[in-house]
Amino acid sequence: MPIFCEASARPEAHYQFLAGGLSGFLEVVCLHPLDVVRSRMQLQGTRSVRGEVLYRGPLHAMASMYRHEGLTAFWKGIVPPVCVETPKRGAKFLMYELFKPYFYFGAPQPTPLTHAMAGTLAGTLESFVVNPFEVVKITQQANRLERLSTLSVVRSIIKHDGWGFEGLYRGITALMARNAVFHFGFFGFYNAIKDWVPISQDSGSELLRKVTIAGFASCLAGVMSFTLDMAKCRIQGPQPVKGEVKYRWTIATIRTTFREEGFRALFKGLSSMLMKVVPGGAMLLVSYDYIYEFLKTTNY
């Protein structure tokens, strides 16, 4: 019996990994331009640096980027997330399912807290894999003058700053905090709301139900974790003054930003982030479900 269970579990894990990876790939390719806009707005201060245009909002940022840098600017830094999203999403779904039994807390069935805690742990652990890719991606996105190749950015960071907390792993604590809060909210809210909204027997209505709930949960989770995301972006991106490290630690970065730029600066780029996260969460869930079911039915 144990041999049978082990053998039957392997295809499930295989399908989950593939479905999660492919859904992550689709999300990145479709929504990466909004990620570039969010990073640009989070990195800019209250005054122009080196004559760069100050973005007044997401639409102004998009228009300025297209006018001054061309269409390809919207996909700057896409190689790192494409490389990491496929295995990351697959591994995250596997870890999420693996961790759920440890957070039942005596309940006979998984509760919203079960999903929230399992998602938090999975999201926190994935930070160690994702962080170097985030540093490279943000460095590429921040550059307005030229299109930097991924390998050249990697070599430059390693040469000048190394592999550790000053280099490819700078901002790791901010990323862990951001991921923990976001995944707690996303998985927790999604499963709590899903239990309240009745399942529809009509396939189209059921699809709409899932998309709506996932999008709403993504919105709430994004707002909860956005200030941490702003701090992560400033720590991992180019510093305002070359040769001087202004943003190093999460709480200190939040305090400095609040003191120098005010409360609104803590939420710079929120609208562009929500424009990406809301459809992104819905796309991730729906595509994962469809791909997973397709792989199971076709015995891929």
Rank of each mutant, 00 (worst) to 15 (best):
S203K: 09
G123I: 09
Y288A: 10
I3A: 14
V135G: 09
A91G: 07
P33F: 10
H60N: 14
F103C: 11
R144E: 15
L26D: 09
I235D: 02
S48H: 08
R50D: 15
G171W: 01
G280D: 01
S200N: 10
T150K: 12
S272R: 00
L71E: 06
A174I: 06
A214D: 13
V197M: 07
I199E: 15
F258D: 07
D35C: 12
I158M: 00
I235F: 09
S156P: 02
M273L: 09
M273V: 01
Q140I: 03
K296R: 12
Y290M: 08
V245K: 15
G204L: 12
A7Q: 13
P87L: 05
G188L: 02
V79N: 05
F4W: 09
I158Y: 01
R264D: 12
K92Q: 14
W75K: 06
V28P: 07
L113C: 03
R47F: 13
V129Q: 06
E27Q: 10
V245T: 15
K100L: 08
E134S: 13
V49G: 06
L43M: 07
M224D: 09
K210V: 06
Q239I: 11
L228F: 06
F294K: 13
V130G: 01
R255I: 09
G188K: 05
V223N: 03
P80K: 09
E27C: 15
M1E: 13
G281Y: 11
F258A: 12
M95Y: 02
T111A: 07
Y190P: 02
S64D: 04
F165E: 04
V223P: 00
M273T: 00
V153N: 03
G51S: 09
M224Y: 12
N131H: 04
G262Q: 13
A122G: 05
K88V: 05
F189R: 06
V245D: 08
L26N: 06
G51Y: 05
G106D: 02
I213T: 00
M95Q: 09
G90V: 00
Y190H: 03
G215R: 00
V84N: 11
K159Q: 05
G167W: 11
K88L: 09
E293S: 15
T227R: 14
T111Y: 05
R209P: 02
P279C: 06
V241I: 15
F17T: 03
K242N: 08
I172D: 05
F184C: 13
T173E: 12
G222I: 00
T139V: 11
T298F: 03
C219V: 01
A63R: 06
S205E: 14
G24S: 14
G51F: 04
E69G: 01
V277E: 02
E12D: 10
